[in-house]
Simulated scan of single mutants.
Amino acid sequence: MSDQKQRVFSGIQPSGNLTIGNYLGALKNWVAVQQENENFFCIVDLHAITVPQDPKVLAEKIREVAAIYLAVGLDPRHCTIFRQSAVPGHTELAWLLNCVARFGELSRMTQFKDKTVRGGSDSASAGLFTYPVLMAADILLYNADLVPVGDDQRQHLELSRTIARRFNHTYGETFVVPKPMILSAGARVMGLDDPTVKMSKSAGSPGHYIAILDEPDVIRKKVRRAKTDSGSEVTATADKPAITNLLDIYSATTGRTIPELEDEYEGRGYGDLKRDLGDAVAEALAPIRTRALELLSDPAELDSLLAAGSEKAREASAPVLRDARSRMGLG
């Protein structure tokens, strides 16, 4: 067993525009470790429909995410890239696990509370409430050993671990209890217009995020308009959340340390930092954008790649689902 690669599962929703936060916090790191593990990288389209989506736009975004996965350097020889909804086992296992999860556990999920703060829980879909169980099914269906997660998903992963242990205790050893994958390099990118909230690809204001497919001049303009703090010293400190965020993005994009950047901009203003950061981000994302647009120009090829990945995912997950069904008396 020690010679076998560990299984890794992760995915991104095809809603909104994938941002530099998705790239620096997830995709870049997936690429870095893809040859070390057996990877299943999913486009989690079923999660996207927990809130209303325009069907035509959603179909386009699914292809767009697939193109970006490939453009950043994910290689189908080292990872299985597929659509969640093309593998029926995700929804079937989610129902089985819904019968194992507890209502009280789901009601304590902070993301559900955060997402329903405006409209209230009465107006939210049941899918939004049970979203964490589908996430557990996504992971457990592949007996994933490791799951790369950010801080905002740790609670959901812990629920997945709880459900796996409860199922194993009740019905016998069935699922691997997944562990969080701690990446040596990861960035928590905050909003350009509000450095107190994580950058969101679904934000209403384009000035909130840098999209991976933004044109270089658009990126430079967004960085120029990014919120700054009072004063003029370029330092990463608790009382300078906006400048700290820009330095974090700069560091994650270029590989240079925060202290190195602080030394470089000592005695210089925010304008210099923004100009150089805009150039650095535009340069880093330009080849990804070019490659993604090339891939999107041939949608049939993208669909074929996703179909092949989905077939591999179905084959890999079928024994796990069969075992879970059998242990529950549904064999």
Rank of each mutant, 00 (worst) to 15 (best):
1 M>P: 08
5 K>E: 13
8 V>M: 06
9 F>A: 08
10 S>M: 07
11 G>C: 06
13 Q>F: 05
13 Q>D: 04
14 P>K: 12
15 S>A: 14
16 G>E: 07
18 L>V: 12
22 N>S: 11
23 Y>T: 09
31 V>K: 11
33 V>I: 15
39 N>T: 11
44 V>S: 02
44 V>F: 00
44 V>A: 07
46 L>A: 06
47 H>E: 07
49 I>F: 00
50 T>P: 00
55 P>S: 03
58 L>V: 08
58 L>P: 08
61 K>Y: 05
69 Y>F: 15
70 L>M: 10
71 A>F: 02
73 G>A: 05
75 D>W: 11
79 C>L: 11
82 F>Y: 13
84 Q>G: 09
85 S>A: 04
85 S>V: 01
95 W>L: 08
97 L>G: 01
99 C>W: 08
100 V>Y: 00
106 L>N: 06
110 T>I: 09
116 T>C: 02
120 G>D: 10
122 D>F: 10
131 Y>T: 10
138 D>S: 04
138 D>N: 04
139 I>K: 03
140 L>V: 02
142 Y>N: 05
147 V>A: 01
149 V>D: 01
149 V>C: 01
151 D>N: 13
151 D>K: 13
152 D>M: 02
156 H>T: 02
156 H>Q: 10
169 H>T: 15
176 V>G: 00
178 P>S: 08
181 M>V: 14
181 M>S: 09
182 I>V: 15
184 S>R: 15
186 G>W: 01
190 M>A: 06
191 G>H: 06
191 G>Y: 01
192 L>E: 03
192 L>P: 02
194 D>A: 10
195 P>E: 02
198 K>S: 01
199 M>Q: 00
200 S>C: 10
204 G>A: 13
205 S>N: 15
206 P>T: 13
214 D>L: 12
215 E>Q: 14
216 P>L: 09
218 V>W: 07
218 V>R: 11
227 K>G: 05
232 S>F: 13
234 V>M: 01
238 A>Y: 09
239 D>M: 02
240 K>E: 03
253 T>P: 03
254 T>N: 04
255 G>P: 08
255 G>K: 12
260 E>I: 09
263 D>I: 12
268 R>Q: 14
270 Y>R: 03
272 D>P: 09
272 D>I: 11
273 L>M: 08
274 K>F: 01
275 R>A: 15
279 D>W: 05
279 D>S: 12
288 I>C: 10
290 T>R: 15
294 E>A: 14
309 G>C: 08
314 R>F: 06
331 G>H: 06
